[in-house]
Amino acid sequence: MMGGYVEGIIAILCINLMFAYGVYLTAASGQLNLGGAGFQAIGAYVAGVCSNSLGFPIFFSVLGGVLGAGLIGFLISFPVLRTRGVYMVLATFAFALVVSGVILNTDFLGGATGMVVTAYTPVEVLILATLLTILLVFWLMASRIGLVMRAVHDDDVVSEIMGVNVRGVQVFAFTLGGALAGLSGALYAHHYSFIEAQYFSALLSIFVLLFVLIGGTQTAWGPLFGASFFTLVPEVLRLGDTEWRYVIFGILIVLMMIFRPEGIITRTLVHRVIMVFNRSGGH
């Protein structure tokens, strides 16, 4: 059996990975979503209500959270996609604040005191869901859907001339991205058995976007690296000088942004690694 500390880290790593892939899908198609925590909160609360009030089995409660967050992602994409650049960042950010505000003011959801979710999901389920999420996103990015998303990221006008339904691609990314963030929230609710609006904060939205941007948006490896790095490195630094660990961590982030402005994992890097791998394997 895993120790409690290691299990705790694996659980949060799984939640962060699924969450990061949710935000990654929109970023990969060129839209920055700074409202990740809003989608995660919707997934958590919908799943919590399904579980507590409707008495759904855990699987269907989690599915409810996924569909709920996906539906909101779909609906919110239409007004959000009318904005561009920094205004889109602000629009998604505002969306997350609205979600948080609604939860805080709804007594049925426990308001500021939070909600206890009685059904419990062990860490193994989180690991399985995370592996499936990673597989899904890697497969998407290996297909023409991923190709089209990356093309829209690079040049939406030319993509449209190539026959791509650019708006459709962007709506798809928001919908599936919302669903994956919702999945992370729904499993969070069932693993930790307690959710509160304060957890799904602006800082969380910022962190998950940082996972994605620093990991790199060009390949599905980016969020895997980014979320793992941000989750594990503070723990590794804990082994050394505790007082300075966040200073060291902050310096690491700044250095990564200076030396790898397109993210740590780029398409070129992946291609070079594959070439080296093929060369050494071929002889």
Binding site: L147, V148, R150, A151, D154, V158, T266, R267, H271
Partner: peptide, 13 residues
């Protein structure tokens, strides 16, 4: 598309 490879750009066509 600057971040796509040669063949990926051609595939877009």
């Amino acid at each position: 598309m600057p971040h796509l490879s040669v063949i990926e750009n051609v595939l877009m066509g």
